[in-house]
């Protein structure tokens, strides 16, 4: 159970994309996601797909890795596309196919197809980010990006600490959960039998010790931090200071040009339905 514990897989490497400052990568990925959310036509999606493929090539990610996480999603995506086709009937849409009670509108076809492309690209962008950036870099970068917001009261350093504690405790708690399941099986709990109400009750002897132990660990950590006079982010320094290099500025220029192209495409071409 503890073996396949990954938050998205990190693929170590030395490509230009791997070596970018995590701040650039996180902000860039967020920018790309924002662009995708706003994108509304095929031309803009085609240019976006070309850019995504360029990113995958630049990061030297084997296609197998990039597409691996996509497999469980595909059947759902197909079902959602069919549902959009059958049920999406905005007023004023032209019926392009009709058979018995089934009426397919052009808007349904476009909404379904655009949604599928958007989902695929969103997934690829997130995958590229997690494949080229380790979790440590991700939290570091997120903290650095949020730090300016500290002035308006957002506790950036504390939020980063919360994320670090979370990542630190996932393997520990996974081990604990495994032990608890074995212990309860030895005591005769029969997991995975009976109707769903019974299954719910079966989970209780696993979840309760898990939560109680979690709270116990939390209390210990709180005591340890308080006795060492932890006071939060004020005046703290970092062992590894993040530095923007020439490649980061280059990446920003590339992103800005690409974003401009996308915005032009969105405005000029417009929604197909």
């Amino acid at each position: 159970m503890t073996r396949n514990l990954t938050l998205g897989i990190y693929l170590p490497g030395k490509t230009a994309l791997h070596c970018l400052d995590p701040r650039t990568k996180i902000a860039g990925a967020s920018g790309l996601i924002l662009l995708l959310i706003l994108t509304n036509n095929y031309a803009a999606y085609a240019s976006f797909a070309a850019f995504t493929i360029a990113l995958i090539l630049a990061a030297k990610i084997p296609l197998r890795f990039a597409l691996k996480g996509l497999r469980p999603m595909l059947p759902f995506l197909a079902i959602m596309w069919v549902f959009q086709l059958l049920f999406q009937k905005p007023p004023g849409a032209a019926v392009i196919f009709s058979w018995g009670i089934i009426n397919i509108t052009d808007a349904g076809l476009h909404i379904g197809t655009l949604m599928s492309i958007r989902v695929l690209l969103l997934f690829l962008v997130t995958t590229i980010l997690t494949l080229t950036t380790s979790t440590v870099e991700l939290t570091d970068g997120a903290e650095a990006l949020l730090r300016p917001l500290q002035k308006i009261g957002l506790p950036a350093q504390e939020l980063a600490l919360t994320m670090v504690i979370t990542l630190r405790f996932v393997p520990t708690l996974a081990e604990e959960a495994e032990k608890i399941i074995k212990a309860q099986t030895a005591r005769g709990v029969d997991f995975g039998r009976g109707n769903f109400i019974r299954r719910t009750f079966q989970l209780f002897p696993v979840l309760l010790p898990l939560f109680i132990n979690a709270f116990k660990r939390a209390d210990e950590l709180i005591t340890a931090m308080e006795s060492r006079c932890y006071t939060g982010g004020a005046g703290r320094t970092k062992m590894k200071v993040l530095r923007m290099g020439r490649s980061d500025y280059l990446a920003w220029v590339v992103f800005a040009v690409f974003a401009a192209i996308q915005v032009v495409l969105m405005i000029k071409v417009g929604r197909p339905y």
């Binding site: 504390e158 600490l161 919360t162 994320m163 670090v164 504690i165 979370t166 990542l167 630190r168 405790f169 996932v170 520990t172 708690l173 898990l210 939560f211 979690a214 709270f215 660990r217 939390a218 950590l221 709180i222 931090m225």
Partner: peptide, 10 residues
């Protein structure tokens, strides 16, 4: 911070 971190881990 600590309780959110650990329950988040769960």
């Amino acid at each position: 911070i600590v309780v959110s971190g650990i329950l988040g881990a769960i």
